[in-house]
Design a protein around this nucleic acid. Sequence first.
DNA 1: CCGTATCCTGCCCGATACTG
DNA 2: CAGTATCGGGCAGGATACGG
Lengths: 125, 125
Amino acid sequence: MTQFALDPYNRNCPTRRLLDRIGDRWTVLIVGALGDGPRRFGEISRRVDGVSQKMLTQTLRGLERDGLVRRTVYAEMPPRVEYALTPVGETLQEPLRALEDWAREHMGGVQDARESYDVLAGSAA
Amino acid sequence: MTQFALDPYNRNCPTRRLLDRIGDRWTVLIVGALGDGPRRFGEISRRVDGVSQKMLTQTLRGLERDGLVRRTVYAEMPPRVEYALTPVGETLQEPLRALEDWAREHMGGVQDARESYDVLAGSAA
DNA sequence: CCGTATCCTGCCCGATACTG
DNA sequence: CAGTATCGGGCAGGATACGG
């Protein structure tokens, strides 16, 4: 039985916070980076340009806690750690990918709109 | 002709920042609130529970600048202002809605995962 | 190679007060 | 009703150093 009102438009609904997490800048990119299969920490780090070690660890931990990513440690020398999407995590890929695609597709139009807007705003000053 | 490499995985690609904007907590909800047609400032404010006047104004301005929302002022007394999605803005609805739906659908599973995780973590302490 | 811990800075965002 | 301006707290997040 589902909750009667899971509504992110309500301040205190847990879906609001979940939405925050999955819309997060790093989450989007990291989940995307795991889309083609398991990846090592360093690989993700290199793929997601500009992410600090701290944020990468922190975001991966959060995703693991939420059951979206599985972390596997191999007792080798040197140590090796792999991250992979869980089945639930994989269901998140599609909506996030759609967001990425939208951004790519509309980047040009948005930039044009900004220029127009800024020109008008500037002329008012 | 499209750019050769619009890639949010690159630190300096403009799509990265666009992605930040559209994944933003308020953007998701505000665009959603405009989904059924034009809305007044106060209406949006009430619909998106917990948003401050400042963030609402700020987010709407950003969306207007990006060409996703159109702002119309009616010279009446008292003043009336309406916000509506532009055609481009409407194309954003689908991906954002998908995100909302995902959050609603998987909220339960995520909460269960968190509890398991926290129990295990706690036992280690 | 992976991860944690600490420090410190910037800026996000909410609260408040004021204009048209 | 709608919007701007200002101030200040809190926290996200980067840099660095160190442990396994």
